[in-house]
Design a protein around this nucleic acid. Sequence first.
DNA 1: GAGTATATGAAACGACTGTTTCAATAACGG
DNA 2: CCGTTATTGAAACAGTCGTTTCATATACTC
Lengths: 190, 190
Amino acid sequence: MVGRRSDPERRERVVRQATDYVLAQGLAGLSLRPLAQALGTSPRMLLYDFGSKQELVTAVLAEARRRGSERLMQGLPPAGATVQERLRDIWTWLSARERAPYARLFFEVHADLLAHPERYPDQAGAVTDWFGPLRAVFADLTTGNDDTATPTLIMAVLRGLLFDLTTTGERERTTLALERFAALLRAPTP
Amino acid sequence: MVGRRSDPERRERVVRQATDYVLAQGLAGLSLRPLAQALGTSPRMLLYDFGSKQELVTAVLAEARRRGSERLMQGLPPAGATVQERLRDIWTWLSARERAPYARLFFEVHADLLAHPERYPDQAGAVTDWFGPLRAVFADLTTGNDDTATPTLIMAVLRGLLFDLTTTGERERTTLALERFAALLRAPTP
DNA sequence: GAGTATATGAAACGACTGTTTCAATAACGG
DNA sequence: CCGTTATTGAAACAGTCGTTTCATATACTC
């Protein structure tokens, strides 16, 4: 009485492949037909599994975010390290060449968020969660109980330098700037 | 023997109107037909004046950049002010609500640059020039002769905080972070 | 094999894109 | 008015887009 069994793995498999594709090709010009061809499937099936392109994109962004946080967690949460060491480690991880696709997608989503906020109901979440785990690493670096300034500043430096790096490609100059920031952080506040 | 005279002002007029439109509507989904209708002209005329959509976009970006630098120059180059005062002034100017469209376009172009570098032959120029004049304001803030680290860091902080502000809208927290950075800068490097 | 539920291909739909073609209009000098 | 040059409108072109429709194929239980 039961017909053909559904394949629940297929959707997840497609999400993973589509995420690879989006990381490689970008999100802006994403189109179902080329995507389907690259994945060896058809636009018909993509819509069969996801209902609409928007839901596919949402799933892909969730997967990309998941990958980013995962590798970040396991990668480098130095426990008793100094601020400078933590900063350097994170910058090394963030600015690595193999992370470039993630950085690009990160900025691409941010731009799309500014243009179409309605597409991202979990407002700041979509973009900030990527950096959320990072923020935790520097949670102890506060000058007071409810000091959000220092973590915010650190995140801004990382994001701003990543912006610079992706634009200019000048790894040396941006890395020196991070070292300078680390030195400033070590100094006691006057 | 000479026919109808050409109207050289028309193109500039259209560029200004189109720039207003792009600042308001964004660059990502820009389309000739809606743009033409909003400007009271036709796609035919836009292509007549600019040859292609790409050239129109290039002209619009140049105009937007021109406006940004212009208002920045006249706005607030404090001469003998302290670093903190300069930082605060610039952040006040950058983060002002009426600057939001520029910020959005700024990040939109950056994302597009990462996806299609070939469209921006003057590589870093397209995006960086917007911040170029700013950099000059802090040119004296170096620890050595060829210290690019400090200006780079300052620009990163401003860009990163602007990124945060446009995403979250939390003006108070981001402004506090800038104050924290200003305090760090005042401290002597140990 | 019958019945049934899932999966999938082929094609079409309507709307949109940047751009081109062709013809018409408008402003000028002689 | 005529010739000439600039400007413009209407329509078509060739393509892409997300999505839907319809029919078919596949895998499963009984």
